[in-house]
């Protein structure tokens, strides 16, 4: 599994593409359009692909069962996450958090447990939706490659 792909995806679903990242990607779109796409996909109003396991699984609320389970997992392994300011992350079942955890734990049996029990059950379908819904790069390609990494 390529850690760079995982961490790039983690960041792309968590916050807007900033100027350095845009430059590094060689992305021709203006920052404003990229920001608008970020909002449309992930934070709304009326986000097309809210990046939460709970939402994807049709729970009535952000967090909920999916987050509770992930919290238990993290607590069991003595893990916690620090989310930088400005990141649009509201609960632990956010894809950005799950991918960061995955990256941190890989490779190893705990990473496999995380993948099997928490990430794959929803993220594979989610990333496919994201790939289909994204109107701007790099979101579509990043989603595809990330999916390939975790399949």
């Amino acid at each position: 599994m390529n850690g760079d792909v995982i961490m790039l995806m983690s960041r792309l679903v968590s916050t807007e593409i900033d100027a350095p990242l845009r430059e590094a990607l060689g992305c021709p779109e203006p920052l404003e359009d990229l920001s608008a796409e970020f909002c449309r996909l992930f934070v709304g109003p009326r986000p097309v692909c809210p990046p939460y396991a709970s939402v994807r699984r049709g729970e009535p609320m952000i967090g909920g069962r999916a987050e509770r389970r992930l919290k238990e997992f993290a607590a069991r392994h003595g893990l916690d996450v620090v989310v930088p300011p400005g990141f649009a992350v509201l609960a632990l079942d956010h894809l950005g958090v799950e991918l960061a955890l995955l990256h941190h734990l890989s490779p190893g049996p705990v990473a496999e447990e995380l993948l099997d029990d928490h990430v794959r059950p929803w993220a594979l379908g989610y990333l496919r939706s994201l790939e289909e819904s994204a109107r701007l790069e790099p979101y579509a390609s990043a989603a595809r490659w990330c999916r390939e990494e975790i399949t």
Partner: peptide, 25 residues
């Protein structure tokens, strides 16, 4: 592009500007 960008922007293994995982008992 993507791999190069990830490395350049420091979002990769270094964890700069990304969600960080810490150990806490």
């Amino acid at each position: 592009d993507l791999l190069r960008a990830a490395a350049v922007a420091g979002v990769g293994a270094a964890g700069l500007g990304g969600i960080e995982v810490v150990h806490r008992m």
